[in-house]
């Protein structure tokens, strides 16, 4: 266990592109998938959902190493399907549909031994993540949907687009 420790805090964010019947406007909603529990509290119970997401990401890394020429991998599809279904059931009306799902993997570097993030630094990051945790956040849609491998920065988190599926 922990043979290869990760040197960054890890996050997964899911984005849904939603269109309404008759209306041409696209709305984009984001929610946090990983970690499942707030980081500013003690973690007392195991989140099997977190483990499932981490295993999916690990499978993606392995698949990429084994098939460097492949354009598409199915490893993150369970995350997109599961979160998409939940989002659809909880927030969408029968006249709305998800037209695109994106999965972004975020990393925030852990300081090396002898250093720690300042409290204000952590508070800023946690406040940002709390917005996503409170429910899907409606964000302005991009002019063109980002390509796989696109990067975005939020607080000290660097997000990378790992999965995108148009429906």
């Amino acid at each position: 266990m922990f043979s290869n420790p990760v040197t960054a805090d890890q996050y997964v964010r899911v984005a849904y592109y939603v269109t309404s019947q008759g209306a041409g406007r696209v709305r984009v909603f984001r929610e946090l998938a990983l970690p499942g529990q707030p980081e500013d509290r003690a973690r007392l119970v195991h989140m099997f959902r977190d483990k499932a997401i981490l295993n999916s990401l690990e499978a993606l890394v392995v698949d990429r190493l084994e098939h460097p020429d492949a354009e598409r991998f199915a490893d993150l599809e369970p995350i997109a399907a599961s979160f998409g279904n939940r989002f659809r059931a909880a927030y969408l009306t029968p006249y709305e549909a998800i037209t695109r799902t994106e999965i972004w993997f975020g990393r925030a570097q852990t300081p090396p031994t002898g250093e720690r993030l300042t409290n204000s630094h952590l508070q800023e990051r946690w406040a940002l993540l709390q917005r996503y945790r409170d429910g899907p956040v409606d964000v302005p849609p991009p002019i063109t949907p980002p390509q796989l491998g696109a990067l975005q920065g939020e607080s000290d988190i660097v997000w990378r687009l790992e999965y995108a599926q148009n429906q």
Binding site: A42, R43, L44
Partner: peptide, 12 residues
């Protein structure tokens, strides 16, 4: 790195 990880650490 393990005890500081946001995925594994018990305390904030």
């Amino acid at each position: 790195y393990v005890v500081q990880s946001n995925i594994y650490r018990r305390l904030p």
